[in-house]
Write a protein that binds this DNA or RNA. Structure first.
Lengths: 108, 108
DNA sequence: AGAGTTGCTACATTTTATGTAGCAATCCTC
DNA sequence: GAGGATTGCTACATAAAATGTAGCAACTCT
């Protein structure tokens, strides 16, 4: 498992521009969901797994490792949570929630 | 290929809440990138493919179909582009770009 | 008519994710 | 301080998804 950081090229991209790294990371299955679930509170591994509809522990651990390397998520005695960067990113996810509510309305 | 819409349950989620559908859609490989590339201009299939680092046409088509069903992307004689909902979502992606720039700085 | 471009589809191969079992370490209760 | 529960994982076989390449039918432009 190699983990990309901004400055290094992302999966698909040749540039290494931070946004490309970010789109690449967030575009991996469960990553958005993990951040969403950690947005409000710190969670232990098994509780986070449960909230992510029972995602396999293999994958959850893989993603958490990556998000910790990227300093978006951290871990302590109380479990996993967002770093200060992560919190800011979480706020952007809340905006996506607002967008999604409007979207639902417009789809009807 | 089944395509979820808000109101119906998402891949992992049992709820069908719009945000869950959205996180599910955006969390699929290449979706964020496709939206990012369409943010500034309409693109034809092959041009979009090229900008997405040569993503396979199979997958690109699959994603575009889904995004059209969800009324985030549309298509006309000039190729593919964002709907009005899509444009609003694109603006959120621009905010992610800002976040990513700050993130890069803080990682050094 | 011939060459180029369009938006795809088919399909074999490779990569990723899932699901289940289980293990070693810590914690809590008695 | 023994027994049970909970912790954070790892292993591994199976299933699902993505990749890469080839190519086709419809259109356009000489």
């Amino acid at each position: 498992m190699t983990i990309k950081t901004p400055g290094q090229p992302a999966r698909g991209s040749s540039s290494g521009r931070p946004i490309m790294v970010l789109l690449d990371v967030l575009g991996q299955r469960w990553v958005l969901r993990i951040l969403w679930e950690l947005r409000a509170e710190r969670l232990r591994f098994r509780e986070l797994q449960a909230r992510c509809d029972g995602v396999s522990p293999t994958l959850l651990n893989q993603r958490l490792k990556q998000l910790r390397t990227l300093e978006i998520v951290d871990a302590d005695d109380d479990g996993y949570g967002l770093t200060s960067s992560g919190v800011a990113l979480g706020k952007e996810l809340s905006r996506l929630n607002d967008w999604a509510e409007r979207w639902k309305t417009s789809l009807q």
